[in-house]
Amino acid sequence: MKVGVMGTGAVGGYYGAMLARAGVEVLFVGRPAQVERLTTEGLRLQAQAFDERLRIEATDDVQHLAACDLVLCCVKSGDTEAAGEQMAPFLSPNAVVLSLQNGVDNAPRLAATLRPSQLVAPAVVYVASEMVAPDHVRHHGRGELVIARWTPRPGQPAPDQVQAVFTRAAVPVELADDVQAALWSKLVLNSAYNALSALSRLPYGPLVRHEGVLPLMRAVVAECLAVATAEGVRVPDPWPAVLRIAETMPGQFSSTAQDLMRGKRSEIDHLNGLVVRRGEALGVATPANRALHVLVRLHEARLDTSHEPARG
């Protein structure tokens, strides 16, 4: 199985590197400057148990994804459509595309840009990682995936085959018949932490120790659950998982915080912003999520957000 990684950032870099480290043939797609660095220097994966520099295959030419059986779409949520449009002419009809992205609607948005028969499966990502440099991924913890099952057609990778490839790379994978509850559970975690970590510029551990933070998080979580319920999605009580994030990843900054610190537009429109939009459509009030969404957008308004889409 040859695996393509569309978007060599913190998520794509981590999972692609773990697969490559296990001997899987991996093709990384990135921007030209990053590809040049990856080609000459390799990709450094700095984890808790090891620190290795891997010789990898990288390109800025999306058409090379045609040779891949499995494609990991790891671009930011705001670049989903652009990435799909770039990939669409070149993907093999039997390729499986996994959406390894934040939010609950990336898989259908991605599928809408591809040929109708292209299989796109959503995945829930639980990993703490950051892109320290264009050729350097630092892993802070976790790394498991929850992937939606699919029924493969002849010649197409099956879910258990994909699970086996990740397992060989020491990446735990759970296959789910209904992944919506897991997607919403992750959205709740992101909505609780991402904006607050970004606005305070604090990692999770110190963040939750500040007065008033946990009650605010509870309000955010309650609104998310109300919207999910109105959507017909039953989400198990997420509060223990919310508290566990700060315990297991105390030094981790949210991806939104990392984006703002690098002068990049964040995914806040697809996190708290999505909760606000769905709440408006369903008649559910979301004042805590709205406030966090507006505050992050105000910070973004001060940034130069003109970036090439789809590959970062």
Results as ranks from 00 to 15, higher is better:
Met1Arg: 08
Val3Ala: 05
Gly4Pro: 05
Gly4Phe: 12
Val5Gly: 05
Thr8Ala: 13
Gly9Pro: 02
Ala10Glu: 07
Val11Tyr: 12
Gly12Thr: 04
Gly12Trp: 02
Tyr14Asp: 04
Gly16Pro: 04
Gly16Asn: 04
Ala17Asn: 07
Ala22Arg: 11
Gly23Phe: 10
Val24Ser: 15
Leu27Cys: 09
Pro32Trp: 07
Gln34Val: 06
Gln34Phe: 03
Val35Thr: 05
Glu41Thr: 06
Gly42Leu: 11
Ala47Tyr: 00
Ala49Val: 10
Asp51Leu: 13
Ala58Tyr: 04
Asp60Thr: 03
Gln63Leu: 14
Ala67His: 09
Val71Ser: 06
Cys73Ser: 15
Val75Asp: 00
Lys76Gln: 10
Lys76Ala: 08
Ser77Ile: 00
Gly78Lys: 01
Thr80Ala: 09
Thr80Phe: 05
Glu85Phe: 08
Ala88Asp: 06
Ala88Phe: 10
Phe90Gly: 07
Pro93Phe: 13
Val96Cys: 14
Leu98Met: 13
Asn102Ser: 02
Asn102Cys: 13
Gly103Trp: 06
Gly103Thr: 02
Pro108Met: 13
Leu110Ala: 13
Ala111Gly: 13
Ala111Pro: 01
Arg115Trp: 10
Arg115Phe: 11
Pro116Arg: 12
Ser117Lys: 12
Pro122Lys: 07
Ser129Glu: 04
Ser129Ile: 00
Glu130Ala: 12
Met131Asp: 01
Val132Arg: 10
Val132Trp: 10
Ala133Met: 10
Ala133Phe: 08
Pro134Asn: 07
Asp135Cys: 12
Arg138Lys: 10
Gly141His: 08
Leu145Val: 10
Ile147Val: 15
Arg149His: 11
Pro154His: 09
Gly155Ile: 08
Gln156Trp: 04
Pro157Asp: 05
Asp160Ala: 08
Ala164Val: 03
Thr167Ile: 01
Thr167Gln: 15
Val171Met: 12
Pro172Ala: 12
Val173Met: 11
Val173Pro: 00
Asp178Leu: 00
Leu183Ala: 09
Leu183Arg: 10
Trp184Ser: 10
Lys186Glu: 05
Leu189Trp: 08
Ser191Thr: 07
Ala192Thr: 01
Asn194Lys: 00
Ala195Asn: 04
Ala198Ile: 02
Arg201Ser: 12
Leu202Thr: 14
Tyr204His: 07
Gly205Ala: 13
Pro206His: 12
Leu207Ser: 07
Val213Ile: 15
Leu214Phe: 02
Leu214Ile: 13
Arg218Ser: 14
Ala219Met: 14
Val221Arg: 09
Val221Pro: 11
Ala226Trp: 00
Ala228Gly: 05
Thr229His: 14
Ala230Gln: 02
Glu231Arg: 15
Arg234His: 14
Asp237Ala: 12
Trp239Cys: 12
Ile245Glu: 06
Ala246Trp: 05
Thr248Cys: 13
Pro250Trp: 05
Ser254Gln: 06
Thr256Ala: 06
Ala257Lys: 00
Asp259Trp: 05
Met261Cys: 10
Met261Ala: 15
Gly263Val: 09
Arg265Pro: 05
Glu267Leu: 03
Glu267His: 09
Asp269Trp: 03
Asp269Ser: 01
His270Arg: 00
Leu271Cys: 01
Val275Gly: 03
Ala288Asn: 03
Asn289Ala: 02
Asn289Leu: 08
Asn289Cys: 15
Ala291Lys: 04
His293Asp: 06
Val294Met: 09
Val294Asp: 13
Val294Ala: 15
Leu295His: 01
Arg297Met: 02
Leu298Tyr: 01
Glu300Pro: 01
Ala301Arg: 14
Arg302Pro: 00
Thr305Met: 11
Glu308Leu: 14
Pro309Thr: 02
Arg311Gln: 15
